[in-house]
Nucleic acid binder design. Structure first.
Lengths: 214, 214
DNA sequence: CGAAGACTTGAAAATCATCAAAACGAGTGG
DNA sequence: CCACTCGTTTTGATGATTTTCAAGTCTTCG
């Protein structure tokens, strides 16, 4: 890793238009891929948790930004080199490849959001995010840190914050969740999963990232 | 490549629940990733054109099917092996890696659909698909083959076929497209691109696939 | 305490879904 | 060539979902 940096909440790790010089490895805190739209609204394209890598094509301007949600510690790892004279460790390449396949699986699941209702979308995102947070050791019991505002949830799901608010109230009335003060509690994980048709199988959690962090 | 196969239109190359034994390389024809939902409706998660690779985590059941849209010729390539004793060609690995990054870029773009209106979604899909088809040599002038029905378009965009129909009529009235008989014409590519806020930069087209096919 | 951001609420309007039926088109067999 | 069928496209009417706008309340934090 070339460097380790720290950055405050709600700042850019990389801006739209920049050409990434490496892969961003999140060491601590929450980050996201975030696109600014012409009308000023934002669209969140991915959530990055500790251990996650933001890998983008090298030498190409990003068409979105990579931003912190909370304070973030991160590292910038040079892009791997696959040429004849590669000096990369094979197990590093293997970990990277698995990671990328996992990322693709998560992205497919987000694409499936297009066919889901507001309630399903939000429920699915909460299930996924909780599961991922849990695997980074960020959850205890049925509870985890959750630094997204309802506005952020709206940017994730492509809904308005007003509708997110009402849908969350609906979920609370259904006794599925608690959500306040940057903290999420799954009161009925199974019920929520059912509402979201959530099946965690697409989430694999090899501790590849830990090898990279070490 | 272990084998080359041919399959009729609207058949499964791989079914949900199967564990893929390799990567599906499309040689000819159109294919898709397709999820069957509980209520019977389908959701199209990706379109696969000649030269495209469907790569999934090995040894894990697919949570969706890979199906043909038209008649398809394809090959099944063993998953790459990254161990110490890897026997893969470095340029093969490099091509594979670039391919996967490209796929991730396209997927991010589809995720952005969550924040788009029906008109934008459809316009964006048409732009992207035309651009990709063009790069496979499947387009001439502003015209290309387009084997998706309006029902398929609905499955891609997460809309109903009725609404897709009305939106297409709207586009025709705007003089942007012609679409009938499995053929798409972009009458005003720029106008359509503008309506979709489409920027082709995320599509890179290294002829990597050709190296794989050869 | 004050200010800024986040959350909540209500009413009206736009978008999109649902249901049902009709028109169109391509292919098949008589 | 015609009649028939099947899938696709088109149309209309109605209803649900979601957005928009605007205002109010609640938290958090300096």
């Amino acid at each position: 890793m070339t460097s380790r940096k720290s950055i405050a909440a709600r700042q850019d790790l990389a801006r739209e238009g920049e050409k990434p010089t490496g892969m961003y490895l999140i060491l601590e805190g929450w980050a996201m891929r975030c696109r600014q739209r012409a009308d000023g609204s934002r669209q969140i394209l991915a959530i990055l948790l500790p251990g996650d890598l933001a890998i983008d094509p090298p030498h190409r301007p990003l068409n979105h930004a990579i931003c912190s949600l909370t304070q973030v510690r991160y590292g910038l790892i040079p892009h791997p080199h696959f040429g004849e004279d590669t000096s990369e460790l094979p197990e590093f390449m293997a970990a990277l490849w698995r990671r990328q396949l996992e990322t693709a699986s998560i992205q497919l699941e987000w694409i499936a959001n297009n066919g889901r209702s507001a309630y399903e979308r939000i429920a699915h995102f909460l299930c996924e995010t909780y599961a991922r947070a849990r695997c980074c050791g960020l959850a205890s019991g049925n509870e985890c840190e959750f630094p997204l505002t309802q506005q952020d949830l709206a940017s994730v799901t492509g809904l308005t914050s007003v509708h997110v608010n009402r849908t969350l109230q609906h979920m609370r009335k259904d006794g599925l969740i608690e959500l306040h003060g940057k903290r999420l509690v799954l009161l009925k994980p199974d019920g929520l999963g059912q509402a979201a048709t959530f099946d965690a199988a697409y989430l694999r959690w090899p501790p590849a990232a830990r090898a990279l962090v070490a």
